[in-house]
C-alpha cells in the first residue's frame, strides 16, 4: 500500500488544526465530507476530492476544538472544545443539535458507537468514560477506570486523565486510554469493566480498533511507540517503533492491514501491520500532526482504496490517496 499526496491546503484554518473526522456519505449527500476543528474555535467542512470548503465555518467552540467524531449515518457530528462542552451539530447546516455539558476538564476525545446509538467521551479528569445516548442526548453511563492491580496506592498525584476512547467495530467493546498509559477495556453491552491492557507508561492520546477484527486495538502513545493489543483476550500482540516523538493520532485502513499515524516529529507514517514495520513516511507538514484519519468508503470490508487526511499545527490539511 502506498500513499500519494493529492492536495494540501495551507492556512485551512486561522490557527493550528487539532482534530479531523470523515463524515460518511448520507442519503441526501452522495459524497463523504472531511471535518476539521481548530484552535480558532471553528469547525470547517471540506469536499473529499479537492478540499474545497463545503460549508461556512461553524463557530461556538470556545477555546478551541479538541476532538471531532462523525455519526455513522453521516448527518451529525460531535465536537469537543476545551471549555468541556460537547456540541453535537448538523454537518451540512452547522446548526447545533445538542450541547452536552461536562464538568471542567472532564471531557476529551469522543467517538460514536459504530451503529450510532451512543456517543462515548473520554472523561478527562473524572477518570472515566462517559456515554450519552444519541436520541435524547441524555447521559447513559459513566464507566470509571479502576486502578490497575499492582499499582502503588501510596503514590498520590493527579488522578487518571482519560484522553482517548475507541469502540470495537461490532460495538461490543469499548477501550479508553489515559495520561499514565493505562488502557481500560469495557464490555460495552453490559457496561462492565473487563481488564487493563499494559505496556504504555505515557499518555495514550489516540486509539482505534481494527475495522475487520474486533480483537485488535491499535494505540499511539507519547512513548513514540505504536502497540497492537488483543483487547478481548488481554494481550500485547505487537509493537511498532519509528517515530521520533509522541504519537498523536492513529487510524487504520478499512481493510485493517495498514495503519497511519501522525506524530510530534511532524511526520505522517504508514505502517504495515503484518510486517510490523513502517512502510512510508510523509514529511510534508512543518509542525506536529494532530490528526490522521482514513475514510471508510461504502462497500464494506476488503476495500483497499480510500482517502487519508492529515491535519497539523502548521494550519494545513493534506489529503492522500492510498491504494
Amino acid at each position: 500500500m502506498k500513499l500519494a499526496g493529492l492536495k494540501s491546503v495551507d492556512g485551512a484554518h486561522e490557527d493550528s488544526i487539532w482534530a479531523a473526522a470523515w463524515v460518511p456519505a448520507a442519503d441526501h449527500r452522495p459524497t463523504a465530507l472531511l471535518l476539521t476543528g481548530s484552535i480558532d474555535e471553528t469547525v470547517r467542512a471540506w469536499q473529499p476530492d479537492d478540499l474545497a470548503a463545503a460549508s461556512p465555518p461553524a463557530g461556538g467552540h470556545a477555546l478551541g476544538v479538541i476532538s471531532l467524531a462523525a455519526h455513522p449515518a453521516g448527518v451529525i457530528a460531535a465536537a469537543v472544545s476545551i471549555d468541556s462542552h460537547v456540541r453535537v451539530f448538523d454537518v451540512d447546516s452547522g446548526a447545533s443539535v445538542a450541547t452536552l455539558d461536562a464538568a471542567p476538564s472532564e471531557v476529551w476525545g469522543v467517538q460514536f458507537h459504530p451503529k450510532g446509538v451512543a456517543l462515548a467521551a473520554a472523561g478527562g479528569g473524572s477518570g472515566s468514560v462517559k456515554l450519552w445516548d444519541t436520541e435524547k442526548w441524555q447521559p447513559i453511563a459513566s464507566l470509571p477506570v479502576p486502578r490497575p492491580e499492582g499499582a502503588r496506592a501510596d503514590k498520590t498525584g493527579s488522578g487518571k486523565f482519560v484522553l482517548s476512547v475507541a469502540w470495537s467495530p461490532d460495538g461490543k467493546l469499548l477501550a479508553c486510554g489515559s495520561m499514565d498509559g493505562t488502557i481500560a477495556v469495557y464490555d460495552a453491552v453490559r457496561m462492565k469493566f473487563l481488564h487493563h491492557l499494559e505496556g504504555h507508561h505515557m499518555p495514550v492520546r489516540s486509539m482505534v480498533f481494527s475495522p475487520v477484527d474486533p480483537h485488535v486495538l491499535l494505540t499511539g502513545c507519547d512513548d513514540s511507540h505504536i502497540h497492537i493489543y488483543d483487547a478481548k483476550e488481554k494481550g500485547l500482540i505487537g509493537a511498532m517503533s519509528g517515530h521520533a516523538s509522541w504519537v498523536l493520532s492513529i487510524d487504520v485502513s478499512p481493510d485493517g492491514m495498514t495503519v497511519a499515524t501522525g506524530s510530534s516529529d511532524r511526520t505522517v507514517r504508514l505502517w504495515d501491520i503484518n510486517a510490523r514495520a513502517s512502510v512510508q513516511t510523509m514529511s510534508n507538514h512543518s509542525d506536529q500532526v494532530w490528526a490522521v484519519v482514513a475514510s471508510r468508503p461504502p462497500g464494506g470490508e476488503g476495500v483497499r482504496a480510500g482517502r487519508l487526511a492529515s491535519a497539523s499545527d502548521d494550519k494545513s490539511i493534506s489529503l492522500y490517496d492510498y491504494s
Binding site: 470556545a62 477555546l63 476545551i82 471549555d83 468541556s84 462542552h85 464538568a103 471542567p104 476538564s105 472532564e106 479528569g125 473524572s126 477518570g127 498520590t156 498525584g157 493527579s158 488522578g159
Partner: peptide, 13 residues
Amino acid sequence: HKAVRVTSLSHGH
C-alpha cells in the same frame, strides 16, 4: 464563563 469552564476544582489536588 470560559474561565470557569477551563479551571477545574473537581478532581485531584
